[in-house]
Amino acid sequence: MEGNEMQEVKIGKRVFVGNLAWRTSWQDLKDKFRECGNVVYANVMRDDDDRSKGWGIVEFETPDELVVRGIPWSYTWKELKDMFAEVAGVERADVVYGDDGRSRGYGTVRFSSPEEAQAALQAFNGRDCEGRALFVFFDKYA
């Protein structure tokens, strides 16, 4: 950027969800992520033989959702919410758990506004948290 040029930041409403169990359906995905916000679209990608590729896309009604990877395995929604509340207005935080009841190491955080979500992304992306690097993002394909 030169001088006082401002870079436009596009905040999306879609998130990538990886490491899905092979049997996960689009409805399972949608139902789980409804805990985080109003889901308007969910899809599990499939190959030519109609087998799951193990990943999918979830689209929320608003861009206020934020995906956080690399959270400590011991964190619950409460620790995740408290951590992000340091810099932004957090409405809700959720940690994703596997069928075995163990944390998958990622979750979602919903903010009061897109501006607060952007501030949290800038403050936490790449930060070390109990020996794990946080990866905080909005889906760039929204």
Score class of each variant (00 low, 15 high):
G89I: 14
R51Q: 09
R132A: 10
G12S: 14
E116R: 06
L20V: 08
E130Q: 10
K81M: 09
S52Y: 12
N38G: 03
T76I: 03
C36M: 07
E59F: 04
A42D: 02
D139H: 15
S113P: 14
G126R: 05
G12H: 14
V40E: 06
Y75M: 02
G107E: 03
Y75E: 00
L29C: 03
I11A: 04
V96E: 07
A117I: 05
V15G: 10
F16G: 10
K78Y: 05
V96T: 11
R102K: 14
L29T: 01
R127I: 08
E5Q: 12
M1W: 01
G3A: 09
K78P: 01
Y75N: 00
T76H: 04
E115G: 11
V15W: 12
M6N: 11
E79H: 09
G70Y: 05
S103T: 09
W22I: 08
L121P: 02
N125D: 15
D49R: 15
L29P: 00
V68T: 04
F135C: 14
G89D: 14
S74R: 15
A120W: 00
E5F: 09
E91A: 00
K13S: 12
A119R: 12
L134R: 10
E61G: 09
D128C: 09
F124K: 05
T76K: 06
F138Q: 02
G131I: 03
K32S: 02
L80K: 05
W22F: 12
A21T: 08
V90F: 00
T76N: 04
E116S: 08
R14Q: 14
G89M: 13
A21L: 13
L80P: 03
N43Y: 15
V96N: 07
N125H: 14
G126C: 07
P63W: 02
R110V: 01
K10C: 11
K13A: 10
E116D: 14
E116I: 04
A133F: 04
F60E: 03
M1G: 05
S52W: 12
E86F: 11
W73R: 11
V58E: 02
T108A: 11
E65A: 01
G56D: 03
V109T: 07
N19L: 11
I11Q: 06
V67N: 07
G107C: 05
D94A: 08
G70E: 06
R110C: 00
F111N: 00
A119C: 10
M83L: 15
I57P: 01
N38K: 06
V68A: 05
E8G: 07
P114L: 13
G101R: 01
P114S: 13
G105H: 12
G98E: 09
A133T: 14
M45H: 15
T108H: 11
Q27G: 03
A133H: 06
W55F: 15
R102C: 10
M45C: 15
Q7T: 10
V87F: 07
Q7E: 12
I57G: 02
K30E: 00
S112Q: 15
K81G: 08
R92T: 09
K30N: 00
T62M: 06
R110E: 00
A123D: 07
G70I: 06
F135G: 10
A42T: 03
S25M: 01
G37M: 01
K10I: 14
E59A: 08
G101K: 01
D128E: 14
D48Y: 10
I57D: 04
R69I: 03
V87A: 08
G37L: 00
